[in-house]
Design a protein around this nucleic acid. Structure first.
Lengths: 345, 345
DNA sequence: TGGCGATACGCAAACGGTTGCGGGAAAACA
DNA sequence: TGTTTTCCCGCAACCGTTTGCGTATCGCCA
């Protein structure tokens, strides 16, 4: 009972005195198999609890029905929510999902991509590590026909498939919101400069200020490396500006939380002496007594599911390889972030 | 350049005019291959960027070097932290990790286990869905020699490998802590009754009260199905008791957060009119202005890594199958939870 | 009765790598 | 120089499934 080897197609063939090919076809409802034998095969298969050996199939078909997901970390609700979207679509298309965390370490990221390649994942969905600035480990995959779709943290190069939330509209809304509340000195707590989103955020910030004819003070634009220490240091810088900023736009809710904590330590009253607006709109903020005044919702689930959808499409194309070498077109889906207001004050 | 098929061992063999077996052995540093050819092979392999086709190896070796992880959801920091522990150990042993979420849905859980079996994962690490009361989908795996290790939410049956944090010591500490603070009416916001931990928690609660000669009021012991609605309802019940409880022991931090929000709506002041103590000690609580007074740390990372370690051990045994049918012994690792005090008051 | 087209099934190769076994050639010994 | 040993390497089977192609059987019509 213990060493009950899994039943194979051969087993069935032997017991029924037919060939393996007949069994295989019978199980696939191939038209050239007689109804009688088809029934017999299917019945015995059921009875033996036969399940095809996926490993063998993967090997034979040269595809694993597995997609890899590489992202900075699962701890952030944004990413775990995105995973849900990915999983949803993937399972619908009968794909497995291999997840791995880069922890914002480019070296790890390279390793992960390499092992995923060796494991022959059919495709990849990636959100870049914060410090990743080179993409050769991804371009290398093209040679092997492994499609890659980026989401959220996407490379700034054009020749990649991407799904992301553009910062422009959300940021514009956010700044306008703050201005309408009377704020004139608005600080920006940005991410690392190599991140596409950071640049967009800064750009939009400038644009709005210019449009509203407000003074631009570059001392009010800082960046954090996303570590807690980096955030505190950046906050120290912001709060040392004179006059102090009365509002701060933070790259995401986690960073905003660190920043708020710092501000509180400096005896500033949140949403009174200083207001926060951030991105992501995580559920944890609803538990705070003083949440950020507003968040730009980034729709992680949608980003994940759209990325997965695109990947599925790409995979279905490379399936029947034989088509003319298409002129390589890249998908570029932009999801507009939207401001969600938490606190009226 | 596009349809650059991945180089195979055959390719190398052909180019070097040796047999595939020689190449295979050369790459594995087999002693029976001459130094000269070994060098030539390895060099060419490097030059061609040869990487063995894992799918083929999996198939041949009848093991996939992949372990499956099934847990309720990744959103809870407890689980994503546990994943980190699992990943750490797994990659150290060159295993891949396939993650899937049951979302506390037993049916989904069954499905996942089934597909993981078909995908021939070598072993499984599982944290049960909240409503799972039958374990036949896991016992079925034994027949096929697929080891399973449970963690955190473990079945109450003895014949499984488990790693979990026992509630006794942590709960005792927690209740004693509250009693020392002067609380006499302590409510319990427990999980579903079928969860092992819920029972342990209630038992210990009773024991301590008895020992301290405090009155036991069963109206103060409730349970939630872990949904937000369930929690609010349970809280409604607790707060309708007379006299009101002055402290509440909640099954985990998320539930505590929901509960605290409810209490606040009832115009109760947290940590003043009513105190909370919970389990897990998540990092998000550090951002709260009024966190639970204390949390019982559950060491998710350790639970994950220990579970993975055990699984690795089990896998290394079944590797060289041929040993006498051992008398099936099950590992049972208990990690003592420890009370962490957040708020002095 | 010979020929023809379906119908239903078997043969065998292929996917890429591993491994037991056997054997040829060179080296060492008598 | 003949024999034995040692060192290298090739042959071939195997893992489970899919699939192109060949073929036996049968019915049917001329």
């Amino acid at each position: 009972m213990k060493e009950d080897k899994l039943p194979t197609i051969k087993e069935i063939a032997k017991q029924l005195n037919v060939s393996v090919s007949t069994v295989s076809r019978a199980l696939h409802n191939h038209p050239s198999i007689g109804l009688r034998t088809k029934m017999r095969v299917q019945q015995l298969a059921q009875q033996l609890d036969y399940e095809p050996n996926q490993a063998a199939i993967f090997f034979k078909q040269r595809k694993t029905s597995t997609i890899g997901v590489v992202l900075p970390n699962l701890k952030e609700e944004f990413f775990s929510e995105a995973i849900n979207g990915i999983e949803e679509i993937a399972t619908k298309h009968k794909y497995n999902v291999l997840i791995s965390q880069s922890r914002d370490d480019t070296e790890r990221e390279r390793m992960i991509v390499a092992t995923m390649k060796n494991n022959r994942v059919d495709g990849l969905i990636v959100s870049l590590g914060a410090n990743t600035t080179t993409y050769d480990h991804f371009t290398a995959l093209k040679k092997y026909g492994i499609p890659v779709v980026f989401f959220d943290r996407v490379p700034s190069l054009p020749d990649f498939n991407k799904v992301y939330s553009n910062m422009n509209s959300g940021t514009r809304e956010a700044i306008e919101f703050l201005i309408a509340k009377g704020h004139r000195r608005i600080g920006v707590l940005n991410g690392p400069e190599q991140m596409r989103s950071s640049q967009e955020r800064t750009d939009t910030y400038m644009q709005v200020l210019v449009k509203r004819r407000l003074k631009i003070d570059l001392g009010l634009v800082t960046s954090t490396d996303l570590t807690r220490e980096g955030t505190l240091k950046a906050m120290g810088h912001l709060l040392s500006q004179r006059p102090k900023p009365t509002a701060i736009l933070a790259i995401n809710d986690y960073i905003a939380l660190d920043a708020m904590q710092y501000a509180r330590q400096q005896k500033l009253r949140i949403n009174k002496d200083i207001c926060f607006v951030s991105y992501a709109n995580l559920s944890i903020t609803t538990y705070l007594q003083t949440p950020p005044m507003a968040s730009v919702e980034q729709y992680p689930y949608r980003q994940g599911s759209e990325a997965a959808e695109i990947l599925m499409e790409l995979l279905s194309k490379t399936d029947h390889d034989g088509l003319p070498p298409e002129p390589e077109t890249f998908r570029n889906v932009v999801i507009n972030g939207q401001l969600v207001i938490h606190s009226k004050r």
